[in-house]
Design a protein around this nucleic acid. Structure first.
Length: 124
DNA sequence: GTTGTGACGACTT
DNA sequence: AAAGTCGCCACAA
């Protein structure tokens, strides 16, 4: 309807991204690239950021669990958003050092993949 | 239609 | 290790 270019405005993708973000379990974090990949949109990390920005608060998306590569918070250090995200992450059992998120499991050099989503043997 | 910017990431120098 | 560059795409001016 109403949309030209033979496609939607991207709302479908936004929903997909929101769904992927909502699927992040508590106490777990993911990166923009990871969310994009899970949403079926590889290389669209920026799109994920945009999706989160335009995401309605009514969705109750755990946006604070989405971090930039690093893992670090994408917001400028010291900004309100940065502090809030950090606080929420700490409330879920994460630790922060400087601009970097430090997990107790990561300390030994655990692979980021395992640290992020754990071993998935279903081969998916 | 072009340009710049952005809640990014990966690669290259 | 740090900075620069490119890719990718949506949106505002």
């Amino acid at each position: 309807m109403a949309l030209k270019r033979g496609e939607v405005t991207g709302d479908e993708r936004l929903k997909r991204i929101w769904q992927a973000v909502a699927a992040i379990p508590r106490g777990r974090v993911d990166t923009y690239g990871g969310v994009a990949c899970r949403a079926g949109l590889p290389r669209r990390a920026r799109l994920v950021g945009h999706a989160l920005k335009v995401a309605p608060s009514a969705l109750r998306l755990p946006w604070h669990r989405v971090l930039a590569a690093g893992p670090r918070i994408s917001f400028p250090q010291g900004s309100a958003a940065y502090l809030e995200q950090r606080r929420r992450l700490e409330a879920e059992g994460h630790c922060f050092c400087g601009g970097r998120l430090v997990s107790s499991a990561r300390d030994a050099g655990t692979e980021l993949d395992e640290w992020l989503w754990g071993p998935r043997k279903d081969g998916r």
